[in-house]
Amino acid sequence: MGLAKRIIPCLDVDDGRVVKGVQFVDIRDAGDPVEVAKRYNDAGADEITFLDITASHEGRDTTLHTVEQIASQVFIPLTVGGGVRTLEDIRNLLNAGADKVGINSAAVHNPEFVREAAERFGSQCIVVAIDAKKVSAESEPNRWEIFTHGGRKPTGLDAVEWAKRMTDYGAGEILLTSMDRDGTKNGFDIALTRAISDAVPVPVIASGGVGNLQHLVDGVIQGGADAVLAASIFHFAEYTVADAKRYMQNAGVEMRLD
């Protein structure tokens, strides 16, 4: 009895449309983020994360409108990330109805931005997204580095040190993605998840590599994650969120099932 672990489906949204294909058999418009968010809410998702991959500047207004639409109809927490660079970006997203915003490369370029954001809006709504890749050889102790530009650009920053620094600066949560595992369906990088989770005082969301329901359990029990984020296993209806919750509960993980 106590705090439940969370399952967070993630939507990639480009100019107001869900991309990377969501395949629900009985949904009218699988590209409509509001419909997809509602569907996940009905299936028992604990939160929704919305990754804005809109490239154009004009597209940002569409994003705000989409956030507004989701927040008017789906009454669970909504995190929006992607392209968040200024305090004004954050304010606009929160005013549109986002509960938390994810900051990724802007934090790497200017760590003070995270401090300013947490002071201005409160740590509870500042999620720092970390994309990490293993850089140590097999014979060496594990070491992961922060990468930007979708995993192409190394920064020289040690992932564990960086996560600690970001929480010192006021990040209220860490969204941790293993760039080695992202898209592989081989499961989370458990050692990375455990290393970050043990190092920071705030909740950690594990992301990258989920291919089956046991991977979600492993992320929580072995990796120490407080929440698990997944996209494709839910989008392609391989499993429903409800399936995942029952599976995790049966494996001894406390979940919200009501």
């Binding site: 439940a4 969370r6 949560e173 005082p201």
Partner: peptide, 13 residues
């Protein structure tokens, strides 16, 4: 025996 994460974030009873 593990340290609890703060903020207390998520669904509790």
């Amino acid at each position: 025996g593990n340290k609890l994460k703060v903020p207390h974030m998520g669904w509790n009873q």
